[in-house]
C-alpha cells in the first residue's frame, strides 16, 4: 500500500513536470483531455513498427505452408479401367496411399443393408460414392485413428470383420463402404475430392 502511494506520487510529479515542459506545444496543438503531441508520436511510432513486424512475420510463417512443387502434385489422375470387380488398387495421392476399389454387387448390397443410424460416423454408400458410379469406392488409405495404412486393398490381405479394410496398428475394422465399424478410429476413411473425367478415368484432388 505504501509502495503504491509512493508510485502515485512519483507519477503525478512526472506529469506535472511534463505539463510544464509541453506548455508551449499545448497552446499550439491544443491540450484536450491531457493528450499531448508526444503521446500521438509514441502511439504512431509503435503502431508503425508493429505493422512492419507483422508484415515481415507473415512471409516467415507462410513459408512453412506447402510449396509450389508440393501443391503441383496435389491432384492425381487414375485410370480405373483395369480394376475388375472385387479388386482394389493402392496408388499415391499427395504422398499418401489412395485406395480405389471396384465393389462387387454383393459388397454394395452388404454396405446398403446397414442402417446408417447404427454407425459411428453415419454415411450411406451413396454419400461416399459418385452418382452413377456406386461401384467405385475411392478413399484415402489412411486410418483415421493415428494415420496407419489399413490392409485389404492388395490381393490376399486381411479385410477385417466387415469385408472392407482392417488397420493392423490398433485394430480398426472398416466395411465395404470404408466406414468405421469397430475399433478406435473416430471417423470413416476419408473420401477425397474427385470426379470422373471419363467413364474410366478419375481425377483426384
Amino acid at each position: 500500500m505504501d509502495r503504491k502511494a509512493g508510485w502515485a506520487k512519483v507519477e503525478s510529479g512526472i506529469m506535472e513536470s511534463m505539463a510544464s515542459l509541453t506548455e508551449d506545444s499545448a497552446t499550439a496543438g491544443g491540450d484536450q483531455g491531457g493528450v499531448r503531441r508526444r503521446d500521438f508520436i509514441n502511439v504512431a511510432a509503435a503502431s508503425f513498427a508493429g505493422v512492419g513486424a507483422v508484415s515481415v512475420a507473415l512471409p516467415l510463417i507462410n513459408q512453412m505452408n506447402p510449396s509450389a512443387d508440393v501443391l503441383a502434385e496435389a491432384s492425381t489422375e487414375v485410370d480405373v479401367s483395369a480394376i475388375a470387380p472385387g479388386q482394389a488398387i493402392k496408388t499415391i495421392f499427395r504422398k499418401q496411399p489412395l485406395f480405389v476399389r471396384h465393389l462387387t454387387p454383393a459388397e454394395i448390397a452388404a454396405a446398403e443393408k446397414v442402417p446408417t443410424s447404427e454407425l459411428r460416423d453415419p454415411q450411406s454408400l451413396e454419400d461416399r460414392t459418385k452418382a452413377g458410379h456406386k461401384q467405385w469406392l475411392v478413399t484415402m488409405g489412411v486410418c483415421t485413428h493415428l494415420g496407419c495404412v489399413p490392409l485389404g486393398a492388395a490381393a490376399g490381405e486381411v479385410k477385417g470383420e466387415f469385408g472392407g479394410y482392417f488397420c493392423p496398428c490398433h485394430g480398426s475394422h472398416y466395411d465395404t463402404a470404408g466406414r468405421i465399424r469397430k475399433g478406435p478410429a473416430p471417423t470413416n476413411l476419408m473420401v477425397p475430392e474427385y470426379a470422373f473425367t471419363s467413364p474410366t478415368v478419375i481425377k483426384v484432388g
Binding site: M64, P66, A74, R94, K95, Q96
Partner: peptide, 13 residues
C-alpha cells in the same frame, strides 16, 4: 498439421 509438415504427409519439407 499441413503447415507443420509443409505438405500433406511427412516428406522433404
Amino acid at each position: 498439421q499441413t503447415w507443420l509438415l509443409g505438405g500433406f504427409a511427412p516428406d522433404n519439407a
